[in-house]
Computed example of a mutant assay.
Amino acid sequence: MLQALIDLWNQSGFASISWGHIVMILVSLILIYLAVAKKYEPLLLLPISFGMLLANLPLAGLMQPPTYEIGKDGLPVLKSVGGLLYYLYQGDFLGIFPPLIFLGVGAMTDFGPLIANPLSILMGAAAQLGVFITFNVASIFLGYTMKEAAAIGIIGGADGPTAIYLTTRLAPHLLGPIAVAAYSYMALVPIIQPPIMRLLTTKEEREIVMEQLRPVSKTEKIIFPIVVTILVSLILPPAAPLIGMLMMGNLFRESGVVERLSKTAQNELNNIIVIFLGTSVGATASAERFLNPKTLGIIALGLVAFAVSTAGGVILGKIMNWISGGKINPLIGSAGVSAVPMAARVSQVEAQKARPGNFVLMHAMGPNVAGVIGTAVAAGVFLSIFGH
């Protein structure tokens, strides 16, 4: 009887658990708390954190690949089928899930504010500053490879699916920490951005009231995704999967003739992919991969990238305000990162703190949706250079 109990203990996860597993389980519980109690990007943070929890349960084997042995005829024979999350992860590794997320994002996005004010795309571009500065710092000064540095830099765009897509192409061994960093900083937009925005602007600038945007016709909204898809895909072919799915989803929305497809892309399909992507990405954050100095460096660099991107958008907003003779509130530049619509809401909150009743939300949505395109373009640049 005693031997049976000893054997049972030795076969349990308790006998194999390490301090690394315990630390990662605690990290996953903290992220679950932030998702549930604080509602920080819960739709993605909750499945990611629970996937992290599952991956760090010893002997569960949920990320275990299948194993084969050579049969008598010399052909491989399946020995073990592998874990559930290993197969879900193939949707990330093969670049399937992130573009499908973009399909849903496109179906939920109104590009009207960007069409009404095309100059706002410049703020979306300026908010990629952190991406390229962090890439150079990581590759030149910190010893990361060019591909690793590109994957780390894209965190500054605050776009989780793009970060996942680029990382699986260039540095799949860093997927766990990069995905966790990208989604964590997306969730913390209301905490990270306001101090930077207030530091770089004066109260007078934050009080600026902007003129109402012009109405955008249905024809413009239908032409826009088609033109963007053609131009971006011809200039940067590697960006076509992300931009193409984003714009196809938007065309579903704006055409008005495929309401069922638009609703499916926004709801059922998007929700299913979010569950699969989030859980499988979280499962890559095992103790062996996560608890090392390089990973901690990624977390720190991701924060720097995001902060610099925010600053880049605000600084360009100030420049455009000066050029326009004081007609542009620089706060909307901070929305040039890709966290839609949270970054635009933060711009609105800060504007109302400076002047109660000031309404800049729709103006901020222009740079915000431009940031989605900008981050996808930045990923396309890196893939064009390093993706071969």
Rank of each mutant, 00 (worst) to 15 (best):
Q3A: 10
L5R: 12
L5Q: 06
I6T: 13
D7V: 13
N10Q: 13
G13A: 10
F14D: 07
A15D: 08
I17C: 08
S18G: 12
S18R: 14
G20A: 01
H21K: 05
V23Q: 04
L26I: 15
S28H: 04
L31C: 11
L34A: 12
L34R: 08
A37Q: 09
L43F: 15
L44W: 05
P47H: 07
F50W: 03
N56Q: 11
L59C: 10
A60F: 11
A60P: 07
M63F: 06
Q64S: 10
P66S: 08
T67Y: 05
T67R: 12
E69Q: 12
D73F: 10
L75S: 12
G83N: 13
L85A: 07
L85P: 02
Y87T: 15
Y89N: 13
L94A: 11
L94G: 02
I96D: 08
P99A: 03
L103D: 01
A107M: 03
A107K: 02
M108L: 13
D110G: 05
G112P: 00
P118E: 14
G124C: 14
A127Y: 00
Q128V: 08
V137P: 06
A138T: 00
A138N: 01
E148W: 04
E148I: 00
G153M: 04
G153Q: 06
D159S: 01
D159K: 15
I164S: 04
L166V: 06
L166G: 00
R169G: 01
A171I: 10
H173S: 13
V180P: 00
M186C: 14
A187P: 04
V189R: 05
P190F: 15
I191M: 12
I192G: 12
Q193C: 11
P194W: 01
P195Y: 08
I196G: 01
T201D: 11
K203T: 14
E204F: 09
R206C: 09
L213D: 08
F224V: 12
T229V: 13
T229S: 03
I230S: 08
L231V: 15
V232P: 00
L234W: 07
I235S: 03
P237R: 07
L242G: 07
I243C: 10
I243N: 01
M245L: 15
M245I: 14
E254G: 06
V257C: 14
E259M: 14
S262A: 13
A265S: 09
Q266I: 05
N267Q: 10
N271C: 11
N271A: 15
V274T: 15
I275V: 11
S280N: 02
S280T: 06
S280E: 02
V281C: 00
S286Y: 06
F290M: 15
L291V: 03
P293Y: 06
I298E: 02
L301R: 04
V304P: 04
V304L: 03
T310S: 11
T310G: 07
G312Y: 03
V314K: 04
I319V: 13
M320C: 02
K327E: 10
K327H: 09
N329R: 02
L331F: 08
I332L: 05
S338H: 09
V340A: 04
A343D: 09
V346C: 10
K353A: 06
R355S: 08
R355W: 03
G357C: 15
N358A: 09
F359T: 09
F359V: 14
L361R: 02
P367N: 09
V377C: 04
A379F: 09
F386M: 02
